[in-house]
Simulated assay, not measured.
Amino acid sequence: MTSQEQAGTSVTTSRRSKITPEREREFYDAVLDQLRENGYEALTMEGVAAQACCSKSTLYRQWKAKPQLVAAALRAGRCVKFATVDTGTFAGDLRSAARAAAQQAGRDTQLVQALGHAVLSDEELQGALREALVEPELAALGEMIDRAVARGEIAADHPAIEFLAAQLLGVQRIRPVLEGRYADADYLTRFVDAVVLPALGLSEAT
């Protein structure tokens, strides 16, 4: 093969490997749908290719293997539920955050459950899950706390602050285990009023 032919082949391969953002989103949606429905172990590149109407080679060429594809899909599905919450009071922010969390509680919990042991054994998946579902909410909660401290509603060194994220995020994950139901808005707002606010020294009327 001449150098000109090799160059032509390289250009063709490069063009073939390009995927539009819209098409990439379809691949990621297929991955997340199958994760929630079947779990990580049952998810296959073949299944994703079938749902996304593409060839397996397309997926392998872009993401090499299942863990990389799943990690990319998780990061692309990143959704910051608490980012726009700002009611003017800490109690109001926490209630609004609870309602926002309820909108995605089922889907988020399904993802966590679907990844199961795979997250514990694969650092890339673990990092992607934290980046998609945990770190954005921790950052948003941190901003709520900073505003509350600035308003004088709570002391910066209040001991309950350390456990706030574990309370709000943990209760979403555990309710399906304990009661077989996802944490809806009513459940989470009642949890905030009965557990979170008293722990912070705030009242329901705040």
Rank of each mutant, 00 (worst) to 15 (best):
L133E: 02
E143K: 15
D93N: 13
R36M: 11
Q172K: 11
R95M: 09
E46W: 08
L200C: 03
P136K: 07
R130V: 11
A114S: 08
T109K: 04
L197V: 08
H158Y: 13
A128S: 05
Y60T: 11
T109Q: 12
F82Q: 06
A91N: 00
G106I: 05
A98K: 11
G201I: 10
D122E: 13
A83T: 07
Q68C: 06
A91G: 02
L125N: 06
T13Y: 09
L111V: 15
S10Q: 14
S96P: 00
I154M: 03
S3F: 04
A183D: 01
L188K: 08
E143G: 12
A76F: 02
T189H: 03
H117M: 12
T109N: 13
T58I: 11
G170P: 02
V192Y: 02
V134T: 10
A97Q: 13
L120T: 08
R15L: 14
D122M: 05
G201R: 07
S121P: 02
R151T: 01
L35W: 09
A7Q: 00
A102T: 05
N38Q: 12
A166T: 12
L120A: 13
T189P: 01
D186M: 04
T87Y: 03
V31Y: 05
Q126S: 15
P198W: 10
L138Y: 09
A160M: 01
C54Q: 02
T87I: 06
A97P: 05
K18A: 12
L133D: 03
A100M: 07
D184Y: 06
A97H: 06
D86T: 08
A101Y: 03
R75H: 06
T12V: 14
L188M: 13
T12P: 00
A185S: 14
T58D: 12
V149I: 11
D146Y: 04
T189I: 11
T2W: 04
G47F: 07
S3A: 13
G201E: 10
E124P: 03
E37Q: 15
G106L: 08
Q110S: 09
D157T: 12
P67H: 09
G180D: 05
V80D: 14
D186K: 09
T206K: 04
Q62R: 15
P21H: 11
M1H: 07
R107Q: 12
E5G: 05
L74A: 04
T206D: 14
G88K: 09
T9Q: 14
E123Y: 05
D93L: 03
R75W: 08
D93Q: 00
F90K: 00
L178S: 03
T189D: 06
Q126V: 01
A194V: 09
A160Q: 03
A205V: 14
